[in-house]
Simulated scan of single mutants.
Amino acid sequence: MVLPDLGLSVGWLLIVIGAVLLLVEIHSPGFFATVPATVMIFIGILLLLGIDIFNSGWGVVIGVVVAICAAGFTVWMYGRITPNESPTTISRDSLVGKEGLVIKNVDPNTLTGKVMIGTTEWSAHSTGAPIPVGKKVKVVDSEGVHIVVEEVA
């Protein structure tokens, strides 16, 4: 009679660990813990149902089949709920033609100038005269990791 109690304890332990792993996955998504969590929960349920997946020949087979099915289902479901869109990225070349605001004086000879375009701060230099803080500028080119701007009249 000790083995059924052990199976129940291990079953509940697997379910709890699986649930904790799912909570970790929800907090920090990345498909790190989803498959093991789902497999643990399903194996825990088998143990609670009284299927001896450790000592019985058929129990081992049932455990392996359920684990594979649970993993496959999780991968399939994860693929269905994951958006198919690529993440949005900003390249410096895509900024040409956009307007922004000078937040640190922009000079034609240095890269110490800063321009805010949307919500992103960029290092910049001007095409001609220095541009003071607060002036609107337009991106005319990009060089390396900074942009080239000119004042908007």
Rank of each mutant, 00 (worst) to 15 (best):
T34M: 02
I103P: 04
F42H: 14
V137S: 07
V39A: 06
I41N: 01
L47P: 04
L101S: 09
S94F: 05
L23R: 01
V140E: 03
N109F: 03
G59V: 08
T89N: 12
V10L: 13
Y78D: 02
L46M: 00
F73Y: 12
G30C: 12
D141L: 01
G144S: 11
A67Q: 07
P87N: 15
T120D: 08
K104G: 07
T74E: 09
T120V: 09
W122F: 12
I15K: 14
A70G: 07
V152G: 12
H125T: 03
G50S: 05
G11S: 00
T82N: 13
E25V: 05
L101P: 11
G57T: 14
D52F: 11
K104P: 02
V35D: 14
K98T: 02
M1Y: 15
F54H: 07
D5E: 13
G79C: 10
T38S: 13
V64N: 05
V96L: 09
V75F: 03
V64E: 08
G7Y: 10
G79R: 15
V133W: 01
R92D: 14
P130E: 04
Y78V: 02
G59P: 04
E99M: 00
V75E: 06
A37Y: 13
I17K: 06
A124M: 10
S86L: 13
G118L: 07
H146W: 08
G18T: 10
M77R: 14
T112H: 13
G100D: 04
L14Q: 04
S86H: 11
L3S: 09
I90K: 00
L46D: 09
T88N: 11
A153I: 11
L48Q: 15
P29V: 00
A19L: 10
F31L: 15
I53Q: 08
W58K: 15
I103H: 02
P29W: 02
S9M: 03
H125F: 11
W58Q: 15
A19E: 06
M1K: 15
H27Q: 15
K138G: 07
D93P: 01
N55L: 11
V20T: 03
L22T: 04
G50V: 02
L13T: 14
V64W: 09
P29Q: 09
V20R: 00
A67R: 03
F73N: 05
F73G: 08
V75I: 11
A71P: 01
T127D: 06
V35I: 12
V35Q: 10
G97R: 03
I81T: 11
V24G: 10
A67G: 04
V65K: 07
K135T: 08
I43W: 05
I117M: 03
F73A: 13
T127V: 07
I81W: 12
I15R: 13
L23P: 11
W58V: 14
T82H: 14
I81E: 05
